[in-house]
Amino acid sequence: MANRKKHKRILLHITIWISILIICLPLIYAVIISTRDLQGTFVSPPNLKFGSKAIETYKKAWTTVNMGRLLINSGIVAITTSVVKIILAIMAAFAVVFFDFRGKYVAFAAVFLTQLLPVPVKIVPTFELMKAFNWVDSYYALTFPYFATATGTFLFRQFFLTVPNDLVDAARIDGCSPMTFLRKVLIPLSWNNIGALFLVEFVYMWNRYLWPLIITNSEEMRVAQIGIKMLMTTGSINQWNIIMAGAIITLIPPLIVLLILQKTFIEGFVMRTGK
């Protein structure tokens, strides 16, 4: 009996390892290819040996598309947008849950609209609007249209609803102003949600592609995802080694954020949204 259980356990580990290998295979192959020079990518038959040209390849990917600047741009855009989104979401959710005001449900419905209007649904006029504001090829265009968030507002609303009434009453009796209550009581309680939302928004904004593709022109405004596209557009043979190097560089920041905030994400977001 014990033996069978042990076998079962080993089998389980093996199954998981195989799954992990399959899931990681594309990345593993990418890493391998990124260590070779161009001739090295053409070896036939393909194999899994590492090359010795990693430094050159990564350097080339970095300089060809000015990767440093692109990563900074992606970072500026992703961090600003995530932070603003979180602040706006907290403010809106706070208003909706702790105040009674005319037009509350209209405002709430409006926030919900963001869910219904992703980029492709309004792409041409939004572009026209950016032209009218003279925002084409600027950080404004990359950030402003994304500040509203339904997900975030819902998340905080749901969380705020679980805050006991007594806490609110006590605060009011103590003569605590709403903003102080928000700052001293609610936000300290919300760090898990804030962390989780930051992860979601950061990953989403970092990985955005269609809008930056259309709205940026100059190298100074480009984001990292566009850099990969630029590496892919060689007007010649695909330089897979360099493309993969660019892809791996671009993948690292959101991966780090995911690793750090993984636990918070599961506790603060998945447990609430998934139901």
């Binding site: 403010m91 809106a92 405002a107 409006a110 209007l117 309004k122 006029p125 939004t126 026209e128």
Partner: peptide, 16 residues
């Protein structure tokens, strides 16, 4: 939130 939604979401969609 409402301003952002009206300017960058509702208005462009209306235009579309």
């Amino acid at each position: 939130s409402v301003l952002v939604i009206i300017i960058f979401l509702v208005y462009p969609f209306y235009e579309a």
